[in-house]
């Protein structure tokens, strides 16, 4: 048993080591891409905890990501929060929103839950447009360069510096990735999976399944908010596109492509899809068609995604 356990962590450390080394090897374009992918993969990890682990098919996770983006962006710009405080404020934004939405949306299940989360996310999106005096709506705003600094001891780190940006993104990803592994293999994680597999039975085993679903939503929303905050601060842009349905669909797509309920899936799915969309947008302005095609192909041919299929073919990495 202990051998399997250490395999799990060894794989995780190997993945993180590759990402750490990659920064010295990557050309600038891919360097930036990787930093972005790591932040978005953290968002996907958050989504995976709701849908992948707990079976809560949400189509509104963009609202938590956006809550983090706006909380951090407005917190830095309007309230003058320091960078670490803005980051924490973003996570808090995701947490509070997820708690509120969860309390209402979890009264429903199945497709009704999907529709309700979609609509709440739309309400958040419209709210960002409605209060455009504060949010600058569609256009969004750029977080001032002067604010994006962290002081550690006497040294000052600029988030606009590519190396700093890459490593902050890596640290964030490592935190979310390792936390998701620890969660999945904890007693709580086992209950979340049980809720996904057979909610009624889980309840009859003495678990407050509503409470666990709410917990999953809150953890998921907090991680999504944290990722959103990091995105805003690292890439300096805050705008309502991140609250649109498309970002909720992206989270679903990344997780499905990588492998639902697998810990490594979100990174793989986000990475593959970013490059695929990148490539397609060079070819056509209708590049989003690849999103549609990938979703349909996944459903028809690879329901377990890349990592899920790999586990099936080459033994159980997850155990």
């Amino acid at each position: 048993m202990s051998g399997v356990l250490s395999n799990r962590w060894l794989l995780a450390l190997a993945v993180l080591a590759v990402l750490l080394v990659a920064q010295v090897l990557l050309p600038p374009y891919h360097h930036t891409n990787f930093a972005r992918i790591m932040v978005l993969a953290s968002f996907a990890i958050g989504y995976n905890i709701a849908f992948g682990y707990t079976g809560l098919l949400s189509l509104g996770h963009a609202m938590f990501f956006a809550a983090g983006i706006y909380a951090a962006g407005l917190g830095a710009q309007e309230l003058g929060l320091s960078m670490p405080a803005a980051l924490a404020f973003g996570a808090l934004g995701g947490l509070v929103l997820a708690l509120a939405v969860g309390l209402i949306a979890l009264r429903t299940s199945g497709v009704a839950f999907l529709i309700v989360t979609l609509m709440f996310a739309q309400a958040v999106f419209l709210t960002t447009l409605y209060f455009n005096e504060v949010t600058k709506g569609d256009e969004g705003f750029v977080i001032a360069e002067a604010l994006r600094r962290i002081e550690i001891g006497g040294a000052e780190l600029k988030l606009s510096d590519p190396t700093v940006r890459y490593n902050v993104a890596l640290a964030l990803f490592a935190l979310c990735y390792l936390a998701s592994i620890a969660l999945l293999h904890s007693p709580v994680g086992r209950v979340l999976v049980a809720v996904r597999e057979n909610e009624q039975r889980t309840r009859m085993l003495g678990y407050n399944t509503f409470g666990y679903k709410l917990l999953a939503m809150v953890i998921s929303g907090t991680i999504s908010g944290l990722a959103g905050a990091a995105y805003a601060l690292l890439f300096a842009y805050v705008g309502s596109t991140f609250a649109s349905t498309q970002y909720s669909i992206y989270a679903l797509l990344w997780v499905l492509l990588g492998g639902l309920g697998t810990t490594l899936g979100p990174l793989i799915g986000t990475g593959l899809m970013s490059y695929l969309v990148d490539f397609a947008s060079d070819v056509t302005s209708s590049y989003l068609i690849v999103v549609g095609v990938v979703l349909v192909v996944l459903v028809l041919a690879f329901p377990k995604g890349v990592v899920g299929t790999a586990i099936e073919r080459w033994g159980r990495l997850r155990s």
Partner: peptide, 8 residues
Amino acid sequence: GRLREDPA
């Protein structure tokens, strides 16, 4: 107790 267990 919620986050850790003794697998053996």
